[in-house]
Design a protein around this nucleic acid. Sequence first.
DNA 1: TGTTTTCTGGAATTTTCCTTCCAAATATAT
DNA 2: ATATATTTGGAAGGAAAATTCCAGAAAACA
Lengths: 275, 275
Amino acid sequence: MKTPRDYQTLKSLIMDRKPDLPKRLAQVAVFALDNPDEIAFGTAASIADSSGVQPSTLVRFAQAIGYDGFSDLQTVFRERLRERGSSYDDRLETIMETMGDNGVNKIFSGVIAAASASIDTMVSRVSSQTFEDAVKLLAGAETIYLLAQRRSFPVSTYLAYVLGKMKVRTQLVSSPFGIEPEMMDFASRRDAALAVSFAPYSSGTVDHARILDRAGVPIVSITDSAFSPLTPMSKLWFEIAESDFAGFRSITATMALANAIAIGIGEERRRLRLP
Amino acid sequence: MKTPRDYQTLKSLIMDRKPDLPKRLAQVAVFALDNPDEIAFGTAASIADSSGVQPSTLVRFAQAIGYDGFSDLQTVFRERLRERGSSYDDRLETIMETMGDNGVNKIFSGVIAAASASIDTMVSRVSSQTFEDAVKLLAGAETIYLLAQRRSFPVSTYLAYVLGKMKVRTQLVSSPFGIEPEMMDFASRRDAALAVSFAPYSSGTVDHARILDRAGVPIVSITDSAFSPLTPMSKLWFEIAESDFAGFRSITATMALANAIAIGIGEERRRLRLP
DNA sequence: TGTTTTCTGGAATTTTCCTTCCAAATATAT
DNA sequence: ATATATTTGGAAGGAAAATTCCAGAAAACA
């Protein structure tokens, strides 16, 4: 029974063995799989330091799972980095080859490729000015109303969570009782709204946006066309073209944008010393 | 004038200097830029051997371009590999150039780069076998239980929506009344579960997964470490390492994976002529 | 509870590897 | 063509790192 020379096999080996290992060696096992880069680059001393054990323990660990010593084990971790070296396209190609024409796996590659493409497109289409203005507008709001339904709904739940963590007041306009309009009763021009909707535009989102617009609430939208019903009532809007795969549209780029907006708001408010 | 600590700058430095260097040193310069991986991993002796010079020449080369010694220079080559792993910095640099670098926009670039990096990492880490097995397992289930809380919650709402559209029966285990356990009362081995949780693992998700595990429901997890509390009870699990930007982790890669899984399930059920 | 086994930390040892040095070789200038 | 400066190869020295060893601590067992 020889010791693994590739990272994947080594990984399963370590996981198999971990339950039987004594405390310190198990600690090394966890550290190694959580920080493979560190193992690849560090010296025994530095790794020992950051994983909280003695250098000798590293050697013992390597021997416990069958290697000559720590250096021997380390080469496997380095090999892993070598392999990872190829570019995204190379890798995608490799994956396609390994997968053959098996239906299910084509989906994986395809969806990931679509996600990547969507993000790349977004980078080239979204103007930095729009982003900056949107962040500043939303950061200055007392309450941010989040409008999204159906496929876009997860975007608003995500925003509600992240902004909540940052202590930014949000109102997720969504109710099991259908009282969404009432949820916006207190909205004023000191607030702001972020609406997300793609074709076919959910009527709810558009209606809610209209209500807020009439109340003088500035609206930022994320949508997919300049002719979206949201654009006429939006102060600012982002046009996102999500690539699709086999007719299924991804929402990866939208999530990434939402993520950036949320972090931007957090930073901007911190800069302005807002609560 | 300090020596470069990043590979890009070092590269230009070497190219600038090369014409003025003596023969052997120039030879090293060419070799270094042609085989950066070799420099990163090799020892002075091994590199000297494959580049056809003496070890001392390598030291001289490093000193000629301003470094303390060969080891000092080598760290820069190693750093490059570290970064390429996520390919994060390369991308960031490219994006930064197109976007300018004022405060708010740095965030946009950074978050997008992190999202891209996460997806890339996922492509290289997720095994096609795991994906295929997971899709087949979930596609065969009568009901798919969706387990996720806090930051991961949007992933499950997204899945609930997309799978619902595909007429796949799902149960989003989430209740404002705290009756999540009761929602799983009818779960059986003919069902399946998809659990999503990242460190610090939300106790709710883990508890719910345990309940389903005891009921014999096969579990597929999306998590961030081989030692996550979810892995022991999972039939299959995906390890996703989301890159972070300024301490904010993205969930883009997770969403992309969820997207792929959902579409995979849809296709697989269509293939099997399931309702 | 006492005994034996296993495990751990740290020091000692050995190995590996980087660096320096010097003599020989090559190039450059007069 | 000769002298001087620069460059090169290889060996010796020295630093750093991995490994081994041992004594004490912890755990397992009787």
